[in-house]
Design a protein around this nucleic acid. Structure first.
Lengths: 193, 193
DNA sequence: CAAAAACGTTCACTTAAGTTAAGAAATGAT
DNA sequence: ATCATTTCTTAACTTAAGTGAACGTTTTTG
């Protein structure tokens, strides 16, 4: 479990034994069952999650309907908006699969940052990288049709299309489940004809 | 000009005179005319921009059509994706208005971070905050119709709707210029009836 | 294991966005 | 100031997504 984490970190910075030990002593791992709710809308929390194994999602409930807007799988991090704003959460977070999560909170971060500034550099780089990736993602979303978005997702995250319920995928693609069904049928039809 | 910058920074961290001087001595300001291209697709660059005055945008050219995906106005920062990836840019950056920009590059950042680690903290916080905001933005985009997105923009960034050409706004909203025209007419019609 | 709930697909119908084209309005350049 | 270009709007038509409902399938759960 620690290896997964250190392999990931080693892509960005190299750690001394001291630093690794600091991580091990402060890291909080949590195993959660599929379907477990990690955060409810309306509640506050200081926990950020780093997915070591499994898949979690964020979703809103709008007019009684769940709208899934993001999935986080292996080696992806989610810092809920409410951690940053200190307000109550607009969305829910729950486990799509049985998952192993690394849980962090700002106090823990502050502590480790002051002892080992290298970790702040890591976090800055990760945040900047994510920000840039996310912008590209958003750009692609804006500039393509639902069908293109689905085909694009098939290319870029084929695992997600298999791991995740269709109706959750649909809202992730910005459409209704029926439209996703239809669109998939349309694509199959094209590839036959 | 410096005041604008320091007022902004003071919302996040407090600076000593030494630190302010370091910023002043390293900061590069640039005044650009409306329409100036700051970065061409296919080119590489290490420059990030912080908008002190004016408005810049990123856009793609897809099938010969400009697709504007983001606007940056006063006190907003843009680190182009190609700075992070060191690859050539997928998009163009240009000035929507005459603008005053603070230009940064990674070497300059490294220098100031090593002298004053506080600036790295500032950058980490800013990146994390932006990331969270951007996620919410994306969520709203996914969960609403073009009409709702337009109405939402009118609420949240009314200035943008006035400052920016309609056809650029349209792709920012993920639709065609004709659709934006029609949608606006539809809203007017509703408010009359 | 059986009943209930949730999920995925299909269909007919409605609504809105994409497309193509034309013309009016605004902007910029000489 | 005038001409050329770009931008915005309108309209008719096409295409695809939203909606509501039905139905078979899968998953939960008591």
């Amino acid at each position: 479990m620690h290896d997964l984490l250190f392999d990931f970190i080693s892509k960005y910075i190299s750690l001394t034994e001291d630093e690794k030990n600091a991580v091990v002593s402060l890291a909080i791992f949590r195993s959660e069952k599929k379907g477990t709710t990690l955060l409810n809308a309306g509640e506050k929390s200081n926990d950020g999650y780093f997915v070591l194994k499994g898949c979690i999602r964020t979703y809103y409930v709008i007019d009684g309907e769940e709208k899934t807007t993001a999935f986080y799988t292996e080696m992806e991090a989610l810092t809920p908006h409410c951690v940053t704003t200190k307000a109550s959460s607009e969305y829910y977070i729950s486990c799509v699969e049985d998952s192993i999560l690394l849980v962090s909170d700002p106090d823990m971060e502050t502590e480790i940052f002051s002892k080992f500034p290298k970790f702040e550099t890591l976090c800055r780089i990760l945040a900047e990288e994510l920000l840039a990736k996310q912008q590209i993602n958003f750009d692609e979303f804006k500039t393509s049709s639902p069908e293109q978005r689905y085909l694009n997702l098939l290319q870029k995250r084929p695992d997600l299309v298999k791991r995740v319920p269709q109706h959750q995928l649909a809202s992730y693609l910005g459409i209704k489940p029926q439209s996703l069904s239809r669109l998939r049928a349309r694509i199959l039809e094209k590839n036959k004809g």
